[in-house]
Simulated assay, not measured.
Amino acid sequence: MAILIFIIIHWYTSLFFQSVFHHRYAAHNLFTMSKFWERLFYLGCFITQGSSYISAYTYGLMHRLHHAHTDKAEDPHSPHNDPNPFLMMWTTRNNYFNLHIGKTGAEDKYKKDLPDWEKFDKIAHNYITRFIWIGIYIFIYWLLATAWWQWLFLPATIIMGSLQGTAVNWWAHKFGYENYKMKNTSKNILPFDLIFWGEAYHNNHHRHPQRANNASRWFEWDMGFQTMVILHKLRVIRIK
């Protein structure tokens, strides 16, 4: 079915940019790239995330605070601060926007080397643009949907980026297995991750936050890292 193909493509392309650009580049500086390629990645985020577009600067800042305060009251997105994933999604949204507009401050050490394209974010990161994207999604569903139940996926399409973040940050601190004993509740969701671009290895990532490859054991496979290796060989990025 055409609409399901669209949903799958949307899921993986959106998650690619959130995993590789927002998470590994913006938050952790695991590789470098030229300003030209950085701007292209910004555009890729905008095209694939659409109505759920998030600022690389603010995402990187929020994720650094997550590592600094994991599972504590100051953690901007911890399942231990909210009773269910929907409330955690709302809390994350509020913490994100408070950081984005400067209502919530952060120490300068968390802001170091964050990518920032303020002029672009003013265009991409506003409610008018988000509603335009929602209109585009409704039009796509009108073209491709062949049954009423397929429209049930529309809300997930609209909040795709937030949904992906919640899927990892909620479940990876609730359920899964541990390769490393930590002072936090981080877990690996899947032993072989073909769904979350390698972000399912959350326990591994909390143990080695500055390691480009989230996989640790022989059966674990980090799709995001393998993509980075290809981009490195193509000289698009340079893995540190």
Rank of each mutant, 00 (worst) to 15 (best):
E107M: 09
T227L: 14
F21G: 03
H202R: 02
K112S: 11
A215L: 12
K109A: 07
T32L: 03
H205A: 02
M33G: 01
M1V: 08
T58A: 06
H63M: 10
G105T: 15
P83V: 11
K103Q: 14
K72R: 01
H100F: 09
L231T: 00
F31Y: 03
D75S: 00
F219Q: 15
K111Y: 13
I7F: 11
H80L: 07
H125V: 05
R64Q: 06
I134E: 02
H208W: 00
W117G: 09
Y53R: 07
R238S: 07
A172I: 00
A156R: 14
H206M: 11
T58K: 05
Y25P: 02
L4N: 10
P85A: 06
Y137N: 06
Y177S: 13
K119F: 15
V229P: 12
G102H: 04
Y177K: 01
A73R: 06
G176Y: 14
D71L: 05
H205N: 12
G102C: 14
K183E: 08
L231N: 11
P85D: 06
P209K: 06
F46E: 04
I47T: 03
P191A: 14
L30A: 04
Y177V: 04
W117H: 10
W171H: 03
L114G: 10
T48M: 03
G176N: 05
G60Y: 04
I9N: 11
D116Y: 15
S162R: 06
A124Y: 14
L231I: 04
W148N: 13
P191D: 08
W170T: 08
D113L: 10
A212Q: 15
L40G: 00
L43H: 05
F192H: 08
A106C: 09
H23I: 04
F97N: 07
L99H: 02
N203G: 05
V229H: 02
T13F: 09
G50R: 08
E178S: 09
D71C: 06
P79C: 14
N94E: 11
Q49R: 11
R211H: 12
F6T: 05
N29E: 10
L154G: 14
H208Y: 14
A172M: 00
Q49N: 15
W148C: 12
W197E: 02
N204K: 07
A145F: 01
I189R: 02
N184R: 13
R93C: 00
H80C: 15
I54P: 03
A167D: 03
I189S: 08
I136Q: 10
Y53D: 01
N203P: 04
R64I: 11
M33Q: 07
F120K: 12
N98Q: 15
A167H: 01
K72W: 00
L99S: 00
K109R: 15
A212I: 12
Q18V: 13
F17S: 02
S78A: 13
H66G: 02
G105S: 14
L154D: 10
